[in-house]
C-alpha cells in the first residue's frame, strides 16, 4: 500500500474533523427540532372563598394577570393581557393602559384608544360546591 503523503493525510484529517463537527451540529439540530414543550400555563385558577371578594369590589389578580369584578350583575372577570402584543396592562383612573404601545381600555375592558382594536379577553368565573371562586382562562 502506498504511503499517504503529508498533504493527503492533512486533507483527510481536516475533512474528517469537519465532517464530524457537521454531524455533531446536525445531531444538535435534530434534538432542537424534536423538543419537548414547556408545560402550558394553568387553564383555571382557584381564587379562594367567594366571600373574600365582597360586592362592589374590583380586584387585580396580578399573578394571572386578570381583573375580578363583583357588582350587581354578579362576578365578571377579564384578562389584563393587552390584545395588541401581549404586555400586561396597568390600572389607571380611567381604566387600563398598556405600557408597551399605549393602548387604552375603559373600566369594562373595551378599547378606548389604539393601537389595539380588540377588547380585553373576558374570562368565565364560577363558584364551586365548596364556595370557592374558579376563574377559567379559556
Amino acid at each position: 500500500m502506498k504511503k499517504p503523503s503529508r498533504r493527503d493525510f492533512l486533507k483527510l484529517a481536516s475533512n474528517s474533523l469537519l465532517g464530524l463537527s457537521g454531524l455533531l451540529g446536525l445531531g444538535g439540530l435534530i434534538r432542537f427540532l424534536s423538543f419537548d414543550m414547556d408545560p402550558a400555563p394553568p387553564s383555571e385558577y382557584d381564587l379562594g372563598l367567594a366571600t373574600d371578594f365582597p360586592p362592589g369590589s374590583r380586584t387585580l389578580l396580578m399573578h394571572i394577570p386578570a381583573v375580578l369584578i363583583h357588582d350587581n350583575d354578579g362576578w365578571r372577570a377579564f384578562s389584563m393581557v393587552c390584545t395588541h402584543l401581549g404586555c400586561t396592562v396597568e390600572q389607571k383612573d380611567s381604566g387600563y393602559e398598556c405600557p408597551c404601545h399605549g393602548s387604552k381600555y375603559d373600566t369594562a375592558g373595551y378599547v378606548a384608544r389604539g393601537p389595539s382594536n380588540t377588547p380585553l379577553k373576558k374570562l368565565r368565573v364560577e363558584v364551586n360546591d365548596a364556595g370557592n371562586l374558579i376563574l377559567f382562562m379559556n
Binding site: F32, D38, A40, P41
Partner: peptide, 20 residues
C-alpha cells in the same frame, strides 16, 4: 412562535433557545 419559544409562553425553554 412555539418553535422559537419552545412552549406556549416565555419560560426556561425559551432562555435555552435564545442562548443557542
Amino acid at each position: 412562535y412555539e418553535f422559537v419559544l419552545g412552549g406556549s409562553e416565555p419560560g426556561p425553554a425559551a432562555l435555552i433557545r435564545f442562548y443557542s
